[in-house]
Amino acid sequence: MKTRWGRAFWLSAGLLVLAVGLSVTVGAVPVPLPVLARLLWAGLSGRAVPANLPAYYHTIVFDLRLPHTVLMLLTGAALGSSGAAYQGVFRNPLADPYLLGIASGAGLGAVLILAIHRPAGWGGALALPVAAFVGAVLTVALVYALAQVEGRLPTTTLILAGVAIGSLASALTSFLMLESEGTLQRAITYLMGGAPLSGWQPVLAMLPYWLVGQAGLLLSGHALNVLQFGEEQAQHLGLNARRAKALILAAASLTTAVAVAFAGIIGFIGLVVPHVVRLLWGEDYRREVPLSLLGGATALLLADLLARTLLAPRVLPVGIVTALFGAPFFLWVLRRARPTAT
């Protein structure tokens, strides 16, 4: 058991390193690996850039590629681990921050604060995830309440409630965008899956919230395992099921919210990745959460790579690429899940 889990971990970590390497080197101006290695070495050891390298490499790697890569890495990791947590809490393989409308709710929260307050600079960047978090938590609570039928959460009502609330949130978001003038409009287009923010500021603003949310999720593996037997049996086993669910949903919503606040609404990573992890390595949330975190980061980096290269020099919204792969997968899971979930 231990070695199998170790293998899974190192394999996932290795794939992620590979994806990071690809993401930084591939682009309109390719950065050859030796050049990247020398730049990174120089950057890390605090020395000057080697004189024999063209100066633009430094700008491309440190000001453009790396911040974008790290943003995608953190976002993908957030979607992967929070997807695993949502699937665990809802005991439903189709629960995903996007399908449950939580990402749209987070997006609405972020747009609302942009519209009302129009925060700028660091204060604004740090307030954005908080607003998105409030939107996400309200959405989860609403979907949970609406989907409940006699104390159970059937797949159909869960997905329908998620889609309905998500559409409502998206409609309100679009309305706010139409009503706003040019500057705000540009600032919020990325929320709809458009061009993501660039530079180090979003990455650094995201990081503290990301760390808190991920720590919460990584600690909830055992509780998620116990919850798979339902609330009543979880109580028999000594877990305060209601409180555990609330805490895990809060951590998952925070994690989703930071992803949405800085990278926009990106679907299907949170659905596909935990599913693949379960298929490959079995069901144990103490492993599934960290493996989905790594896998989510890898998956989004690869999707982003496709988005940047498929129609280069045009850049597709990465959400289109994830949907292109994710939607068929969703249908496949739906068919597979039918006999057991009602």
Partner: peptide
């Protein structure tokens, strides 16, 4: 999982 009442939060 029957050992849950004796385990830490991490299990």
């Amino acid at each position: 999982l029957g050992r849950t009442p004796y385990l830490s939060w991490l299990g």
